[in-house]
């Protein structure tokens, strides 16, 4: 019986984009020395990394009242969401802290607004408005952000239409 193991060293660390599928909750494998290579990030995350660091490090009362820093878990979930929604050609969103430890991801372009409130992990309220048509939509989301991806595609389409006829 094999009762203690080391992972195969065969090529894993050298395969581009290889990533472990789970975090190390198993107790079987001894800690492995592994070079940590930063995976390529989207332009949005490259632009927003510093901003996310900043809003999670805000002092208590940062807004002149009793404002709390953005919670680490909310920021991490937002980072995950931003990376998931990335579409090349759409400018990076603004990230705005809420005084209750939440944060908002926003695009306001060409009279088209998208606001995504990240209240915490799996707690998202999203709103969009097309000022030209007056159309508004609000969604409460937990795990599936397919609809938001569609909104970002619409934002890109609006942008391209404006470029063409603007």
């Amino acid at each position: 019986m094999i009762d203690s193991l080391q992972g195969s060293t065969a090529f894993q660390d050298e395969i581009l984009c290889y990533a472990p599928t789970a975090d190390p909750i198993s107790s079987l494998s001894p800690p492995r020395r592994r070079v940590r290579v930063e995976l390529p990030r989207s332009k949005w995350m490259a632009d927003l990394q510093e901003r996310l660091d900043e809003i999670t490090s805000l002092p208590r009362g940062w807004d002149g009242y009793d404002g709390r820093p953005v919670s680490f878990n909310a920021a991490l979930f937002a980072a995950n969401l931003i990376e998931r929604l990335f579409v090349a050609g759409v400018p990076s969103p603004d990230v705005v802290p809420g005084s209750d430890g939440t944060l908002q991801i926003e695009w306001h372009r060409n009279q088209y607004d998208i606001e995504i409130d990240v209240l915490g992990p799996y707690e998202v309220v999203a709103y969009r408005r097309n000022q030209r048509t007056g159309n508004e939509q609000e969604l409460e989301l937990q795990t599936d952000f397919t609809a938001l991806a569609g909104w970002i595609d619409d934002l890109l389409a609006e942008q391209q239409t404006n470029k063409k006829y603007g």
């Binding site: 975090d23 995976l39 980072a79 990376e83 998931r84 599936d144």
Partner: peptide, 17 residues
């Protein structure tokens, strides 16, 4: 999480201190 084009997004990020 699910949806969106970037399939690698569930990989870990480091934000804040």
């Amino acid at each position: 999480t699910f949806g969106g084009a970037n399939r690698l997004s569930s990989l870990g990020f480091h934000v804040g201190p």
